[in-house]
């Protein structure tokens, strides 16, 4: 696809749902609804809130209830969307989210939205906070419908699903066959990109290193810096914890059950009946967070190296630095 066709192609995506893309909002970026491609900042590094928000909403109503009728009633909204411009790390993160939310007890809210969504990936260049290369998530092999690799004056487009194939064939006028020179250019661009990564984290054996460092002083040291504000979790593309509340209406009989993203850095996360807290201080919470992120739960790295937690930590706790301390490298 030529660079000039991008506008027209994006316009045509309307057929497949409301289009969302990375938009500049102040100093950071956010996936917002767009009507034309030029509203997007496609050279963005990362959005503060990752695209998980389309599937596991930041806040959402799960259902309503009425005590008089003894009724629970679903309130699902529906609607097709196209998420344009997702980076490989965020695609990997969604693959992990899928494993959790679409397992043998699928989450209907997540599942519906996932089925209604078209994901269009977009190539990127790392900044000093990206370490997806170390996590092995810098090149999306699957998990998208289409993936656009930006070359000099064109895009190399990969098709990742039947849905993507359908979009490509319905918009065939924008696409040209790949020539060997394109492949050469793509190869060079990818090779160049591989060399752009400056931040590295050795991940082999990390799971065991974390286990061995369970009693390490590192946790106390960083917990002293930590606010316990939960920002790291809320901006993390793979953090998927949520909390649930019931809200009663003025009639005291009806109301709604709501869920919102939660954070394991908050006090209530480990709290059970009777005031017993399994993670009473920031030391246990911070350690738990790093162990969870560094694990291979669901047979995947639970961190995709997007750098958000480091960027948005108000006290500048550096994820990679902490893990390098755990490994004894620093």
């Amino acid at each position: 696809m030529t660079s000039e066709s991008l506008d027209a192609f994006v316009n045509n995506l309307e057929t497949y749902g409301k289009i969302y893309g990375p938009v500049k909002t102040g100093e950071s970026c956010s996936f917002q609804e767009i009507s034309q491609s030029k509203e997007m900042a496609l050279n963005y590094s990362r959005t503060m809130i990752p695209p998980k928000k389309f599937f596991l909403k930041l806040k959402e109503r799960m259902f309503i209830f009425d005590e008089r009728e003894c009724e629970y009633e679903e309130t699902l909204e529906d609607g097709k969307i196209v998420v344009f411009g997702i980076h490989p790390c965020d695609i990997y993160a969604l693959k992990l989210m899928d494993k959790i939310y679409l397992d043998k007890n699928p989450d209907k809210y997540y599942q519906m939205r996932r089925e209604n969504a078209t994901l269009i990936g977009y190539s990127c260049h790392p900044d000093e906070y990206c370490f997806c290369q170390s996590q092995g998530t810098n090149y999306a092999v699957d998990g998208f419908d289409l993936f656009l690799h930006e070359l000099k004056d064109k895009f190399l487009v990969r098709i990742g699903s039947e849905k993507g194939n359908k979009i490509a064939s319905e918009n065939s006028k924008f696409f040209m066959d790949v020539e060997s020179s394109d492949i050469q250019e793509f190869r060079e661009a990818e090779g160049k990109r591989e060399k752009e990564f400056t931040l590295k984290l050795a991940i082999n054996g990390l799971t065991d290193m974390l286990a061995l460092s369970y009693e390490s002083d590192v946790w106390k040291e960083y917990a002293d810096k930590c606010f316990g504000c939960g920002s790291c979790n809320l901006v993390c593309p793979t953090c998927r914890c949520y909390d649930v509340v019931d809200n009663v209406n003025m009639d005291l009989k009806s109301g709604e059950r709501q869920r919102m993203l939660n954070s394991c850095m908050l006090k209530k996360h480990g709290l059970v009946y009777g005031g017993k807290n399994f993670r009473p201080t920031r030391v246990e919470r911070l350690r738990n967070r790093f162990n969870c992120k560094g694990s291979l739960r669901e047979d995947m790295m639970n961190c995709v190296g997007c750098g958000r937690c480091t960027v948005y930590c108000p006290s500048k706790i550096d994820y990679v630095e902490v893990l390098r301390r755990v490994r004894g490298e620093l």
Binding site: G26, I49, G230, S231, V245, L266, Y312, C313
Partner: peptide
């Protein structure tokens, strides 16, 4: 139930720009 978590959580849930980090 009283909220016992910081304002940061509400900023993130509302997708408000981080004034401390960004500005």
């Amino acid at each position: 139930e009283i909220k016992d978590y910081p304002v940061c959580v509400e900023c993130k849930l509302n997708e408000y720009q981080c004034l401390l980090v960004d500005k």
